[in-house]
């Protein structure tokens, strides 16, 4: 290539660069050019999601469907306003929320898609004797190891002292207990039948669902809350057992003042969450369910 041609190409590419940069920067910041040649500021909604084939509706209109590879959805070009966002997946309870959108900002949502019908697996106390053993008239049942292990977890959870919600939020004085749960830097506390959330980390690192450094009420009920814990694998949701036996899943969000609660189980006497699995007693029977 001759030096003259090289200079020409460089000049042309430089012009392209100068044209592309402002366009891309303004676009990435949320500016859009309308048909009437008016530059408007827009915002967006981001759906953080791990489920494939889930459908997103905004103001009742289907907008996008999550794929097998990319499940998160970003909706751009939204005028600043409040939108009704519905997220649906087959066999799951539809998730709906009023989401305000601000100019040049993205409202992040992490829909808690709960199964419509829970099919738990019972953990039996004894493993039934095999046929071979019956022939030898050995009818003694073997104790189920899993049952023993899960019961140990229940006992361990019950042994925690019932901590009082501390006045100071210094980490060293926080001890998890019946009324205090912590996941990452998200602290949940039960006080006077109200559940509060507090962000204990740096303000800069605040998660999307908390917008204040002060503690904020995220749940209460007419029934007494007997027990609560974080939802398996999530720090923005928790499970609360009410005195009547209902187990409620609550998705907290201090930004929009809307904490969605859904009844997950109708008869639950005790529960624990361990390694993404919910274990619960219904009467004397022990069940497990992978959420």
């Amino acid at each position: 290539m001759t030096p003259g041609k090289q200079k020409l190409v460089i000049a042309a590419l430089f012009v392209v660069f100068l044209c592309m940069i402002p366009l891309l920067i303004f676009y990435s910041m949320g500016y859009r050019l309308r048909v009437e040649l008016k530059l408007v500021q827009t915002g967006g909604i981001y759906i953080s999601n791990e489920e494939p084939d889930a459908v997103l509706y905004i103001n009742g209109k289907e907008i996008k469907r999550s794929g097998v590879i990319i499940q998160n959805l970003l909706i751009q070009d939204l005028k600043p306003d409040v939108y009704t966002v519905r997220f649906e997946k087959e066999n799951c309870t539809p998730w709906t929320k009023k989401v305000p959108v601000k100019a040049k900002r993205v409202s992040v949502c992490y829909p808690l898609l709960l199964p419509q019908e829970i099919k738990p697996v019972e953990i039996k106390k004894y493993i039934p004797a095999e046929k071979k053993d019956l022939k030898t008239k050995n009818t003694r049942h073997t104790v189920n190891d899993e049952y023993i292990e899960v019961n140990k977890l229940f006992k361990k959870a019950a042994m925690h002292s019932a901590a009082i919600f501390p006045g100071s939020l210094q980490r060293e004085v926080l001890k998890p207990g019946k009324n205090l749960k912590m996941q990452g830097r998200v602290l949940l506390g039960l006080e006077k039948n109200r559940i509060y959330v507090t962000w204990t980390g740096k303000k800069k690192n605040m998660p999307f669902f908390i917008n204040t450094m002060k503690r904020k009420q995220v749940f209460t009920s007419l029934e007494r809350i007997t027990h609560f814990d974080f939802y398996p694998g999530r720090s923005d949701s928790f499970l609360a057992r009410l005195a009547g036996g209902n187990l409620v899943a609550v998705e907290m969000d201090t930004r929009f003042g809307e904490n969605i609660s859904t009844v997950l189980l109708k008869r639950c006497d005790r529960f624990i969450v361990h390694n993404l699995t919910l274990y619960y007693y219904s009467g004397s029977r022990l069940y497990k369910y992978d959420l």
Partner: peptide, 17 residues
């Protein structure tokens, strides 16, 4: 970038762009 930046359109557009 922290929460303030991570809720901007720019933050979300960056990986896509």
């Amino acid at each position: 970038g922290g929460m303030e930046f991570n809720t901007t359109m720019l933050s979300f557009s960056l990986p896509y762009i």
